[in-house]
């Protein structure tokens, strides 16, 4: 069993060469033996027979091994074909792997971009303002002619394309400067009313209307002017005139 295991572990080439060496040695021995027995005319039966038997046995072994070697040659051819196929499959797999890597990269980029998009959607959702509110605000700022002048506006038209003094003062800048919001010059109350954005407390009552006029600070002829106003004059126009007259009175008092 040990010998068989050793023979199985040895390569066929080694075994062939080993048997071939044996054959060479045995055939030489046999020939020398025969030559010797012939020259000496001494028959040595048995010994040469033994060598001959061994030679025949080794020769048979050699032929069997050569057959095995031929078979192994065929198997070797098959293995070469299989190796080529393995190489081809390997390159196919490598190509596929490369493609999968590319796909992974593309998908990772897409997922990253999608996540960024989701983040901005979430952000927009948190700070959402209803469209109704935006439209309302748009109406409000355009109704006061604060963003653009009316189409037929000409210098002197009381409707203005600019924020009023009062509006400026009630805004953030006005608050920062801590300016008073009443007793303003150049304000046109009709306009403010039209804009509809002044608090009720500010709209109807102006200090000069009640105090200044009643204190008799206006020159007496002004009062007469009012008296001369034609009947049916509407309230708004009256307000305008009043405001303008207040302007002139204040400027005159300034000059004093």
């Amino acid at each position: 069993a040990m010998a068989a295991a050793a023979a199985a572990a040895k390569s066929t080439k080694e075994r062939l060469l080993f048997v071939l060496d044996d054959l060479e040695v045995l055939s030489r021995e046999l020939i020398e033996m025969l030559a010797l027995s012939r020259s000496q005319k001494l028959p040595q039966p048995g010994e040469d027979n033994q060598v001959l038997e061994l030679l025949v046995q080794r020769d048979r072994e050699f032929q069997e091994l050569m057959e095995v070697a031929q078979q192994q040659g065929k198997v070797h051819e098959e293995m070469e074909l299989l190796e080529k196929e393995v190489e081809k499959r390997d390159s196919d797999i490598q190509g596929l792997q490369k493609q999968l890597k590319e796909a992974e990269h593309i998908l990772a980029t897409a997922v990253y971009q999608a996540k960024e998009k989701l983040k901005s959607i979430e952000k927009a959702r948190k700070g959402s303002i209803s469209s109704e509110e935006i439209i309302k605000y748009a109406h409000r700022i355009s109704a006061s002619n604060a963003v653009c002048a009316p189409l037929n506006w000409v210098p002197g038209d009381p409707r203005r394309p600019y924020p009023t003094d009062l509006e400026m003062r009630s805004g953030m800048l006005g608050h920062m400067a801590n300016l008073p919001t009443n007793g303003v010059n150049g304000h046109l109350p009709g306009d403010a009313l039209a804009a509809g954005r002044l608090p009720d407390v500010l709209t109807p009552h102006y200090p000069w209307q009640s105090t200044d006029v009643s204190a008799g600070m206006l020159p007496p002829h002004h009062g007469n002017d009012f008296g001369l106003e034609p009947p049916g004059h509407n309230k708004e126009n009256e307000d305008d005139v009043e405001a303008m007259s207040t302007d002139s009175s204040s400027s005159s008092s300034d000059s004093d």
Partner: peptide, 28 residues
């Protein structure tokens, strides 16, 4: 003998190599 292909291993070992190669091709 020196020029014969495929006899650098024993038949048993060669059979094992062949089986391994077949398995590789099959798996791939």
């Amino acid at each position: 003998i020196a020029n014969m292909p495929g006899i650098d291993s024993s038949p048993t070992a060669q059979e094992q190599q062949l089986a391994t190669l077949r398995e590789q091709v099959r798996t791939k």
